[in-house]
Write a protein that binds this DNA or RNA. Sequence first.
DNA 1: GCAAAAGTGTTGTCCTTACACCCATGC
DNA 2: GCATGGGTGTAAGGACAACACTTTTGC
Lengths: 245, 245
Amino acid sequence: MKKTAAPVVHEPHLIKDAVQLVDAYPKVYLTVDCVIFGFEESKLKVLLIKSDLEVFQAKLSLLGDMVKDNEELDDAAYRILKERTGMNDVFLDQVRAFGHPARHPGGRVITVAYCSLLNINHHELKIHDNDLHWHSVSSLEEMAFDHKEIVDYCYAWLQKRIQEHPLGFNLLPDKFSLRELQNLYEAILGVSLDRRNFRKKFASMDLLIDIDEMEQDVPHRPGKLYKFNFEKYEKGKRKWVGIDF
Amino acid sequence: MKKTAAPVVHEPHLIKDAVQLVDAYPKVYLTVDCVIFGFEESKLKVLLIKSDLEVFQAKLSLLGDMVKDNEELDDAAYRILKERTGMNDVFLDQVRAFGHPARHPGGRVITVAYCSLLNINHHELKIHDNDLHWHSVSSLEEMAFDHKEIVDYCYAWLQKRIQEHPLGFNLLPDKFSLRELQNLYEAILGVSLDRRNFRKKFASMDLLIDIDEMEQDVPHRPGKLYKFNFEKYEKGKRKWVGIDF
DNA sequence: GCAAAAGTGTTGTCCTTACACCCATGC
DNA sequence: GCATGGGTGTAAGGACAACACTTTTGC
């Protein structure tokens, strides 16, 4: 799941040299912030809390925490997600680092943003500390720190990413209808798509498994349900070459 | 050129709270590493030095340095590029952060990788400290720290990036022939492309300006020279939507 | 005149888009 | 029977892949 660099073993006196060299420089605090997107009622949402810090007067904030000694960045992100939502069966991708010198009132704090997508209905929020809640992405106003900038950047990253990778299926139930899938793409990309062409597109990719079940409890004609064929997708990954800008 | 967050002004006692909160946590060192790709003799190269640290026994290393107090990450990257190569007319993109706890023998050092492309012949290396030199990307062996991993990641990032953004023109002379352009793409992507289709592709994009000059001093029929129409490109940026994976 | 690369066009295939009608179900 | 969305087909246009010959220049 995660890449781990080979452990490095060095002679003690050489390590001492390295330590001395490094020692003259300033240190910074290191945090990880999780931008956790979810999908509900055909709307894209993001998981937020109210900031602990008095200075921000309960402005909205991302889920973040300091990285521990000897903790991988990836591990820290998964830890935070787990601590805040109780889950660990979710992918998480590093997006980039944010390091403006004045972004945190408590000193210089570098943060590494991680992005995730999950299905709101699959993951009941059991912890409501700091008013943890799903917030509509489209109505985000002021946030604590530079978190608005981070969310904006991650949202753009997500829009690009979802067009090239099958992330969306993490937001849907295991079994989903084509309408649900289309609503998802429309919500995230902020566009409307032709229903027939959308269905043809996915039919031609041949990555959906028709499980021969129908929707239940919908107030109209029920649609077929599908699963995503992750196995076939993994096998068929190709390297695409094509200049386009 | 760079985004700068708005300066934040807070009441002193609130800042004190924030400082105290943060103070309990571990700090880390922060560096920036520049992965500077260049192009020469139809080969992609990367700018490297020999590591200062005795512990690495002169293994190859990226151009990196500690970030200063109150220095933006972006600024640090531009500073390092300038200090090492004497240039500042080059774009530079953040790729991602690398933070394995044991990646540096001197303590916990988080590094943020920046990637750049430049024209080797435009930028003579005036400083040869630490055996600064252009190294072939294809023959990279062991490197200091986790720098091999960083280069590999940045190379993959670059391959994707150059297909979607007109980065390549930074590596070429102001005036270039279509053959030079094609060689560049073939070298970076590691593929061979059909010459006619390649030319048609760029002709249809209509982003090359025919400057009505010919190559000089080539041992064969000279080709036409072009410039890239950056202005038109900037105007015509469109948001593309299309699912493809 | 020979080597090396420039320059150019056509065809078939595939993908994308635009668009309209009938069907199944719940109420 | 009406509202809601499910499900399907076709035609046109555009992009891309495959492919070969003539031209210009240096030597």
